[in-house]
């Protein structure tokens, strides 16, 4: 298993796989018994995975990857092409500027920064949607940033364990 990611292709595959897992979580339907309002608590999994890889491997995953991922998410969610792409490249820019400092932080300090980035992600998406006339503000809009920040330690530790064990580089 350790040999899987020793070459570039293997690493790319694993990074892509974690992104795909994030996307699956992003669209997984809530069970019917749960009120649909709970959907507001769904964190932006794809953004969190993206932020992790930018911090961990800034020379592999950067703004272009973020843009491509954003486009795929746009197709997945049926939003305007380029909407999530735009939000993701802004996040990627911030993350890649801060990666050295973020590596020094504890997980919970990182979570605070991640909260800010997730909030920025939601705000950019809301801004583009309201320009297109498609959205109105409601107070739950930033909730995914909160849930995402709270779940960040889990995501970080899991992805880090995966990266180390599989020697992703």
């Amino acid at each position: 298993m350790e040999a899987v990611a020793d070459n570039r292709a293997g690493s790319t595959a694993i990074i892509a796989l974690t992104m795909a897992a994030g996307m699956v979580l992003a669209v997984m339907p809530l069970p019917g018994s749960v009120p649909p309002e709970l959907g507001y608590l769904r964190p932006d999994w794809v953004v969190m995975v993206l932020i992790y890889w930018i911090i961990a491997l800034p020379h592999r995953v950067g703004i272009v990857t973020a843009w491509g991922t954003g486009l795929i998410v746009d197709v997945l969610l049926g939003s305007l092409l380029g909407q999530h792409a735009l939000a993701y490249i802004v996040i990627a820019y911030v993350a890649s500027s801060l990666y050295q400092r973020l590596r020094m932080f504890t997980v919970w300090q990182q979570a605070l920064v991640v909260f800010a980035m997730l909030g920025m992600n939601r705000l950019i998406i809301f801004w583009t949607e309201s320009i297109a006339g498609l959205a109105q503000w409601n107070m739950w809009y930033l909730l995914p940033a909160v849930s995402g920040a709270l779940l960040w330690p889990v995501v970080f530790l899991m992805l880090r364990a995966m990266r180390r064990k599989l020697n992703v580089s």
Partner: peptide, 17 residues
Amino acid sequence: MLGLGLLSIALMFVDHV
């Protein structure tokens, strides 16, 4: 990044209109 940003905005505009 600026280039991609402008491209995204252009894409959104085309897709919406």
